[in-house]
Design a protein around this nucleic acid. Structure first.
Length: 869
RNA sequence: GGCCCCUUGGCGAAACCGGUAUACGCAGCAGACUUAAAAUCUGCUUUCCGCAAGGGAGUGCCGGUUCGAGUCCGGCAGGGGCCACCA
């Protein structure tokens, strides 16, 4: 008599068993017993309060891999920590009159309990939070080493300044040009900030992408575009009319081949020359002011008209004697790309032609499409010189003296050579990537360990004074940085001259914290940032798993940090993540009530097939399926699901159906389906238990046909599922379990009851073992039920027997002229001739051939035969 | 605007190197068990013609390569992502 599986009772029991036995504690050195290491890591969570379905998906995927690799005999590191610094803690402090540390550690406690309830195979002994003084202490050490090694610089930079809250805002906190909390118009303000010189490694970070063959192509491409390498030239245009007679304007271009088409130069409103000219030129001053007011949002930029003001300066053309170009200040020239100055070639750049038409500047075509005859080329150039559209395609140079007739690539090369010989320019490479500004005017972050002394300048905090701890007695009742207005914290004696000095009150960008945590997990209690033996053993991370939203910043910063840490002796490798997997989001239907308000899924029920509100009974509109978000209320609380069905069901459902890299839709029906399967699996184990042979019974000498079929089905499922797990095709792995379960369901013992008992046991045990990475608690419970006294987590992964994967007979499709007409069951080792004869003997084939002469026969052994007539 | 990806039943999706399209699940339908319900089990479920046997069509659309295309190539449409006045 089978009973129902009680997940809610079973799961805590097994979690305790694993914990008590230390099943997931990581072993190192001699204890690793020569096993190959495997480091699986999911992006650590921000302790925002409670876990959400995205976490469930992320950590389930990682846990499947961790448990699978462990069963395959790897020494697995699977740690967990908390990305615990950041603004929400400060906002909570303001709103709830609490302390960021209290709020954060309380959230961590809640979320840790929730994650433990998922039954994750994590080594909790390695847990840390980035806001632990022990962690940020070592981060400060790293920073000081980077400073010493020349990876850090301090320079002026524009920031988003909220004049009401008196704070710097991250770009994401600026919404339509206003501070997200205060609603105040954000100003561009120039502040002195700390930077990590990531641009120095732009080339190397770019080249390194090619070695990351276990990263998604998409992510590598995004990073490549973000780094944005362009080859081109720097060109120096000697200026006349400037204060300094020797002055020249430095311009970056990717199209030096179009220099003969230049009709103006333009500089950014932020360009030093523009600022200098504004001092004596009211028109320019007014223009700069106007430009500064323009919003920086995409929408604003989309609509902005290209505008400029003539400076009156003239730039001498490098190739054409006596040809001077007007110099404008123009609003479409960016200060932080290239040199902040351009030359305009209207015929071959859309922005330039827009500008040229507005200010009646010449449009000189210098590139024509290839393979046009003389007349067509003439017509083309005419249209170009009078029209509104630039020609940016490939072609050959015209109207360009020594470049004429060269294609674009050759013309670029020739133009650069000429510039270099004239000493008016040179070939160069420009990157889109900017240095990484790491200063934040925030309390809840890692203090930047330097001291400002009037006499000595910037002085690093001596190692003996580390860590620079955050003061705990801070208030959030007034805007601004609590560190800055703390009565005593920032006042210290200069470590060099002992005179009164002040601490840096900025803290690190939280991306700094997450740029090296994976290394800290290797030796989380070390007195140094890393232990070389530990990081050399564990790194790189073999499989890193997280959301694609971190494809650029976090992953690029971590790659940079690894290089910087290697250069300073803390690591011994450049690429921290050998394998990367970016999982999709968890989505759900959205619901709206009659008043247009969003409804939570639990507020909606089905009545007569129509969705209605649970309490009021009013009609509910089902909206589009979107990623779960608080604002749309289409969220499912993982704790509620786990409390209702158990963690295994939640894990099973989140792995089912959708490939992990794609979005998965959470549905109540799907969750119920997953729950039904846990019961079905349990039933398969507990029904007819008395018919099974004891555990460990050797394989009988012979198996009758039904037993053999099940035996084969077990091994086919095992082989396929193993391959699926190796390739992270977790949705298919789930499907294989269903297939095996179906095979077990329909199994009817033959006459040989011993064979049946053995094959049946093998099938059940295989099913339990391969399901274990996905539903670990249920697997343990089933294992006991099957008479074992060991744990599944200590049981090695079974091995599929290759000979069982091929059938003796093959079903071959028979095509005539590529169209399937029939199929043929034939011995697997039948030769082509035999297959052909058998195929031709088929009635349907004969009919399809219809007496025509056979021209060709293609046989793919074991698969298909195609008869061409 | 640039770069990139995707498009297969009512739905989520399988289909490995170009070789029997739709595995597996969800939903649905029919049946069994039951006093009844729940639970469970069995069968059907791409579409069209047909009582059936059987036959036709079919992987967004148009074309190409091939004995053979969901898969490769060219074009188009729709959806999505990243970057975005990047010189």
């Amino acid at each position: 008599m089978s009973t129902r599986y009680n997940a809610l009772a079973s799961e805590p029991k097994w979690q305790k068993v694993w914990t008590d036995r230390g099943s997931f504690l990581t072993r190192e050195g001699a204890d690793a017993e020569g096993k190959p290491k495997y480091y699986v890591l999911e992006m650590f969570p921000y302790p925002s309060g409670k876990i959400h379905m995205g976490h469930v998906r992320n950590y389930t995927i990682g846990d499947v891999i961790a448990r699978y690799k462990r069963a395959r005999g790897h020494n697995v590191l699977h740690p967990m920590g908390w990305d615990a610094f950041g603004m929400p803690a400060e906002n909570a402090a303001i709103e709830h009159n609490t302390h960021p540390a209290k709020w954060t550690y309380e959230n961590i406690a809640t979320m840790r309990a929730q994650l433990k309830g998922m039954g994750l195979a994590i080594d909790w002994n390695r847990e840390f939070a980035t806001c632990d003084p022990d962690y940020y202490w070592h981060e400060q050490e790293l920073f000081l080493d980077f400073l010493k090694a020349g990876f850090v610089t301090r320079k002026k930079a524009y920031v988003n300044w909220d004049p009401v809250d008196n704070t710097v805002l991250a770009n994401e906190q600026v919404i339509d040009g206003r501070g997200w909390r205060s609603g105040a118009l954000v100003e561009r303000r120039e502040l002195t900030q700390w930077f990590l010189k990531i641009t120095d490694m732009a080339d190397e970070l770019l080249a390194g992408l090619d070695t990351l063959d276990r990263w998604p192509e998409k992510v590598r491409l995004m990073q490549k575009n973000w780094i944005g390498r362009s080859e081109g030239a720097r060109v120096f245009f000697p200026l006349t009319g400037a204060k300094d007679n020797a002055a020249s304007l430095e311009v970056f271009t990717t199209r030096p081949d179009t220099l003969f088409g230049a009709s103006f130069c333009a500089i950014s409103p932020g360009h030093p020359l523009a600022i200098e000219l504004a001092a004596s030129n009211p028109a320019i001053a007014a223009f700069l002011k106007e430009s500064a007011l323009t919003g920086t949002t995409e929408a604003a930029l989309e609509k902005v008209e290209k505008k400029g003001v003539d400076t009156g300066l003239k730039a001498r053309h490098p190739f054409i004697d006596g040809h001077d170009l007007p110099v404008y200040v123009a609003n479409f020239v960016l200060m932080d790309y290239g040199t902040g100055a351009i030359f305009g070639c209207p015929a071959h750049d859309q922005r330039d032609i827009d500008f040229a038409r507005k200010y009646s500047l010449p449009v000189i075509p210098v590139v024509a499409p290839k393979d046009l005859d003389a007349d067509a080329q003439c017509a083309f150039l005419d249209t170009l010189s009078t029209g509104k559209d630039a020609f940016t395609g490939d072609g050959i140079a015209v109207n360009s003296r020594f470049l004429d007739g060269l294609d674009v690539t050759a013309a670029k090369r020739a133009a650069i050579a000429k510039l270099e010989s004239l000493k008016l320019g040179e070939g160069t490479v420009n990157f889109r990537l900017r240095d990484w500004g790491i200063s934040r005017q925030r309390y809840w972050g890692c203090p930047i360990p330097v001291i400002h002394c009037e006499a000595c300048g910037v002085v690093p905090v001596p190692a003996k004074d580390l860590p620079v701890r955050l003061p705990e007695d801070v208030t959030f009742d007034t805007p601004g940085n609590p560190l800055d207005r703390h009565p005593t914290w920032k006042h210290v004696a200069c470590p060099t001259c002992a005179k009164p000095a002040t601490r840096e009150t900025d803290t690190f960008d939280t991306f700094v914290d997450s740029s090296w945590y994976f290394a800290r997990f290797c030796s989380p209690k070390s007195a140094k940032p890393t232990e070389r033996a530990a990081v050399d053993y564990w790194l790189p991370v073999d499989q890193y798993i997280g959301g694609v939203e971190h494809a650029i910043l976090h992953l690029l910063y971590s790659r940079y940090f690894s290089r910087a840490m290697s250069a300073t002796g803390h690591l011994g490798l450049k690429e921290p993540f050998a394998g990367l997997f970016t999982q999709g989001m968890v989505t759900h239907e959205t619901y709206k009530g009659e008043d247009g308000r969003w409804l939570f899924p639990e507020e909606v029920k089905q009545t007569n097939g129509e969705p209605v509100h649970v309490e009021t009974g009013e009609r509910v509109t089902v909206g589009p399926i979107e990623s779960m978000s608080k604002s749309k209320r289409n969220v499912i609380n993982p704790t509620a699901i786990i409390g209702q069905y158990g963690a295994d069901t939640a894990r099973w459902f989140i792995l089912s159906d959708s490939p992990p890299e794609r979005d998965v839709q959470w549905s109540e029906a799907g969750a119920e389906g997953a729950w039904r399967f846990t019961q079905r699996l349990w039933r398969l184990i507990t029904t007819d238990l008395e018919l099974l042979c004891p555990p460990g019974t050797p394989e009988p000498a012979t198996l009758d046909a039904p037993a053999m079929a099940l035996h084969r089905a077990s091994h086919r499922a095992l082989a396929a599922l193993t391959d699926d797990l190796d390739n992270l095709r977790l949705n298919r792995a789930v499907a294989r379990v269903y297939e095996l379960a179906n095979a077990i369901s329909i199994f009817e013992p033959g006459r040989d009851l011993k064979a049946a008992a053995w094959a049946h046991r093998e099938a059940l045990e295989t099913m339990v073992l391969v399901t274990a990475p996905m539903m670990p608690h249920l697997a343990e419970e089933c294992w006991v039920e099957l008479g074992h006294t060991t744990l599944v987590v200590d049981t090695p992964w079974p091995v599929a027997v290759a000979a069982l994967l091929v059938e003796d007979t093959a079903t071959i499709a028979v095509q005539v002229n590529g169209k399937r007409r029939d199929e043929l069951v034939i011995a697997r080792d039948a030769d082509n001739k035999t297959i052909e004869q058998a195929a031709l003997a088929l009635e349907k084939v004969e009919k399809a051939i219809d007496g025509k002469a056979i021209r060709k026969v293609i046989v793919v052994p074991g698969k298909i035969i195609n008869i061409v007539v």
